[in-house]
């Protein structure tokens, strides 16, 4: 039986479990290859230093998206379904860095189709340096037996603005 985190178990202000990870050159290169990103700044340190002006190769954009997805669904379990994710990269993540993900629930609401949503901010930091900030909207079951993955068409509104039609908790 898979773990089911339901929307009523989530409150605004709740902290997600922290995830720390020691980044190596292999982390960066594997992430780039897994996302079919062959650009040299993600595997060639000379190129990254000389052309990009960075101190080393660095994590690429789609692999950061994969890290954020993994972090969020570690928390929700498999019934959590990502609806929307936005992230801003302020600084790069390099081999030798220990990156740390920390998340906080900003809001919990149910849309007019009856889908339960948690809005979460996730910060990827290295030491005191904030590297990437991600805001995500992830659907959670409203009760045991509900499954966000069955929603389609008008019952799945990941980009709808949260308005009066949503019941905010």
């Amino acid at each position: 039986m898979e773990r089911v985190l339901t929307i009523d178990q989530v409150k605004p202000g709740a902290e997600l479990p922290e995830l720390g990870y020691d980044v190596t050159a292999t982390t960066v290169v594997l992430g780039a290859l897994a996302s079919r990103d062959w650009r040299p700044m993600h595997h060639d340190r000379d190129f990254a230093q000389i052309r990009n002006g960075t101190r080393d190769i660095f994590l690429n954009t789609p692999n950061q998206a994969a890290w954020f997805e993994r972090y969020l669904t570690d928390w929700t379990g498999p019934y959590g379904r990502l609806g929307r994710m936005k992230f801003r990269m302020r600084d790069s993540v390099f081999p030798g860095d220990r990156m740390v993900f920390r998340g906080r629930v900003d809001a919990v609401h149910t849309d007019d189709a009856g889908c339960g949503w948690a809005d979460v901010t996730v910060k990827l930091s290295v030491g005191d340096k904030l590297c990437t900030e991600c805001t995500a909207r992830i659907a959670l079951p409203t009760a045991a037996g509900d499954n966000p993955w069955t929603r389609r068409g008008e019952r799945w509104k990941p980009d709808a603005e949260v308005g009066t039609a949503s019941a905010r908790r």
């Binding site: 998206a65 609806g83 936005k86 389609r152 990941p158």
Partner: peptide, 14 residues
């Protein structure tokens, strides 16, 4: 030279 600064993704059908 160029970098990406922001990325927004909306997910619909799996």
């Amino acid at each position: 030279e160029a970098i990406m600064t922001d990325n927004t993704i909306v997910f619909r059908d799996p």
